[in-house]
Design a protein around this nucleic acid. Sequence first.
DNA 1: CAGTATCCCAGATGATACTG
DNA 2: CAGTATCATCTGGGATACTG
Lengths: 125, 125
Amino acid sequence: MAEMAWDAAADPEQACPIAPVVDIVFSRWTTPILWTLHQDGRQRFVELQRRIATITPKVLTQRLRQLERDGLVVRTYHPEVPPRVEYEISDLGRSLAPLFAHLAEWASENLGKVDQARDAYDGAR
Amino acid sequence: MAEMAWDAAADPEQACPIAPVVDIVFSRWTTPILWTLHQDGRQRFVELQRRIATITPKVLTQRLRQLERDGLVVRTYHPEVPPRVEYEISDLGRSLAPLFAHLAEWASENLGKVDQARDAYDGAR
DNA sequence: CAGTATCCCAGATGATACTG
DNA sequence: CAGTATCATCTGGGATACTG
């Protein structure tokens, strides 16, 4: 057998099989973008910018490119004057919906407990 | 009615109800820690450090404190010589297990598609 | 053992201004 | 409109060394 090269980037995953997904789905700004796209449908760049409000165009572009590359979002360019670009969630992106719902459910049931834990922790010192 | 102060931190959530959970559960290093604690049970500081391997003691401490504060992990200090500290997942932390399983399932079904999408995207230019 | 204390740096983020 | 370019900032994270 040949020597196996050891993938350094894979190390955190060694202790956690879900680490790769987390990077793809839960890196900063991705959930607001995916959520909005899923909720409000196909949108233009400025609409996304307005809905997310605190994101800058630069960062929005970066995140959208990443999501497009990962196949979670579809970008459509209409060569008009002025140019029109539309973003929509892909089937792959849509397949995250149950997961997000699950997450929302956990949140509604347990976010209060987290707050309590924080108060207890902060109060105890 | 009194003026409502506007919580700036809440803005990204405006477009995304799950943003707060993501911060708590999916910030860096938290999934490997929670996963290990869930998988291998109560552990001492060094054991965690060994299992996660690339994490430095400083960062491990930071993350563990955060998880403890959020009520996802329980820290037990045994005043002995040498000191012994044990970490275990809390009930609240354990309640994330189905969610993590869901995530792992999505990963096994769709991570390949993400890779394909990346290849297609990178190849197309 | 279980951390703390420092120093340091890269990469991510934000603010602002400009272009096809 | 849909970005890009540039610059300033800043926090997280890593390396290393030290302590009760």
